[in-house]
Design a protein around this nucleic acid. Structure first.
Lengths: 153, 153
DNA sequence: TATTGTTATACTCTATAACTATA
DNA sequence: TATAGTTATAGAGTATAACAATA
């Protein structure tokens, strides 16, 4: 009983409310930052994974971020239409599409990376650098509830 | 610019990703906790505000949590059908519905409060109590970008 | 004329099922 | 038989527009 958090009856102090609105605020800033570059948040996420692990199949790409295969189709369609990625059949397994960045796609990704980083900085502006770093570390801990085994498999 | 965060090309270290998945995890736990009580998250949010400020009109209720008036109609419909709240015309302004908790609704809210608090505790389990408190404080700061005027600091 | 609650409608986002072509 | 990609479809969730009752 003494532990029930929204103690003053303030629903806006519930963790769910706080997290939801923090995310909404970050999203608004990230969208605004990426919009001039002609890509959206989801596409930026795909490019981030791709830049690190290129080339990847559509489904490998999706499973790394949590985008399902049917959604990925449209994302790759859009990125391909914008000449940011190429979709070519994998010679080793022709069911697969090898997704790779184009040269201009690499440039777009670099610019988008800076724009997104700036959006994060604006979002974190109320915090000191130390608080920001601690906040990110805490979120990592909450997203990895099993610190048991450890190490990149 | 050396500040670009997903330094290792790890998209899962972007703040957006971390926040989104943390929220998703909390939502899953809150849903599971509330489900046996027959109410969902949105209804619980409404009850929390209602318990503190009863009685309220539908639109007043909605504006306090950020639920729009058309969505509120269905929420109140559901809560009324479950005999958790009553909807009676406000004598002072008959356009308004005065929403109030029933007696059993108050009981449901108490139980739901405990269940939700327990869900938050499970979600925060990877953190120490001090870290949890700091995390909540940080989220509050991020949600109040204008600490300019008043308020108990 | 403006506002509360309401309905109907549209739009976004995502997930499910079924199909194709490869393996 | 199983898997990668694709398409069509359905389901949440939410927002927009118009309307009736009331102010």
């Amino acid at each position: 009983m003494s532990n029930v958090r929204p103690s003053s009856g303030d629903a806006t102090d519930a963790l769910g409310y706080l997290l939801k609105h923090a995310l909404r605020s970050l999203i608004a800033q990230a969208d605004a930052a990426l919009e001039p570059l002609g890509i959206d948040r989801k596409e930026f996420g795909v490019l981030t994974v791709l830049a690190a692990h290129e080339p990847l199949s559509q489904q490998a790409l999706g499973s790394l971020i949590g985008i399902d295969p049917t959604t990925m189709v449209a994302v790759i369609d859009a990125l391909e239409a914008k000449r940011i990625v190429t979709r070519t059949p994998d010679p080793a397994d022709r069911r697969r599409n090898a997704i790779a960045l184009t040269e201009s796609g690499r440039g777009t990704f670099r610019d988008a990376g800076s724009a997104y980083a700036e959006a994060e900085r604006e979002f974190l502006a109320p915090l000191s650098d130390a608080e920001s770093e601690r906040f990110r570390r805490t979120l990592r801990a909450l997203n990895r509830p099993e610190p048991s085994a450890a190490g990149p498999s």
